[in-house]
């Protein structure tokens, strides 16, 4: 490379901001342009988070089929990321690669970082899995034995915490899973984890050898698990 090349960055469509409505504030000064915050701040504090995410299973099958067709035509690898209890559902595409860890991002820049399908980190969710260590996919696929997991995250005061777990793997039989309207015959493996901060179960659905088609993996202890479905390989 002889010279620094001019870079091209594509970004999602810019948001149109409506400004100066009623009691809202506006301006270009980032330090003070969120007077709106003051009004909403107390409200958000005491309001339970009610959300209206999309449950794929309840969608019109034709709509799901046309979405899958569009994604397949696009040929970009796609992972569907869901947090059932938070009603979070979004598509993610590859965004970065660091060694064997691939980072996937939604258009809202929530990201999940996966090592051969195993969840390593999240960003953009607020309470994020900052980093973690755990078994490799081959060990999970074997479906027996024990594993050790370490999860690192930041609390609401930005202080780091580590939660450790010991887990037991078990084969959970054959199961058919539906990923965005398409069925896959899979082999299911369960990983039951116990630590000082409670317990949880990770689940993995392999469609062949060590290829993860679907998984339910702990993200942030206390917050819950993410469901990851590989839609387009």
């Amino acid at each position: 490379m002889g010279a620094v090349l001019e870079m091209i960055l594509l970004r999602p469509v810019a948001t149109v901001v409506l400004c100066c409505a009623a009691m809202a504030s506006c301006g270009t000064n980032p330090e003070v342009n969120d007077y709106q915050s003051q009004f909403s701040a107390f409200a958000t504090l005491f309001t339970a988070h009610k959300s209206s995410g999309t449950n794929i299973a309840t969608l019109d099958p034709n709509a799901v089929a046309s979405l899958r067709n569009a994604l397949q035509a696009d040929r970009q690898p796609i992972t569907l990321v869901m947090h059932p209890s938070l009603k979070y559902t979004n598509l993610m595409a590859p965004y970065g690669q660091n060694g064997d860890v691939q980072t996937w991002a939604s258009t809202h820049y929530e990201t999940v970082s996966l090592r051969q399908g195993m969840l390593v980190a999240t960003r953009g969710f607020g309470p994020d899995l900052m980093s973690s260590t755990g078994p490799g996919v081959a060990q999970i696929s074997a479906g027996h034995g024990t594993t050790n997991r370490r999860y690192f995250y930041l609390d609401g005061g930005d202080q780091p915490h580590e939660f450790d777990y010991t887990c037991t793997l078990s084969a959970a039989g054959a199961e058919s899973v539906t990923v965005l309207g398409k069925s896959f015959a899979t082999r299911k493996v369960s990983e039951s984890c116990v630590g000082t901060q409670g317990s949880f179960v990770n689940q993995y659905w392999f469609d062949h050898s060590t290829n993860l088609r679907q998984s339910r993996q702990m993200a942030v202890p206390g917050l819950g698990s993410l469901v990851l479905q590989r839609v387009i390989d």
């Binding site: 999602p12 469509v13 988070h49 959300s51 995410g53 999309t54 794929i56 979405l67 569009a70 994604l71 696009d74 970009q76 796609i78 569907l80 947090h83 938070l86 009603k87 979070y88 559902t89 979004n90 598509l91 993610m92 595409a93 590859p94 965004y95 996937w104 991002a105 939604s106 258009t107 809202h108 820049y109 929530e110 953009g124 969710f125 607020g126 309470p127 995250y153 609390d155 609401g156 942030v220 206390g222 917050l223």
Partner: peptide, 20 residues
């Protein structure tokens, strides 16, 4: 991260997340 046509047919948006 996602090409335009995919972005247009996204399923859902980010939602707030509760206590950690």
């Amino acid at each position: 991260p996602l090409p335009g046509n995919v972005a247009r047919i996204l399923l859902a948006a980010l939602l707030p997340i509760g206590m950690a």
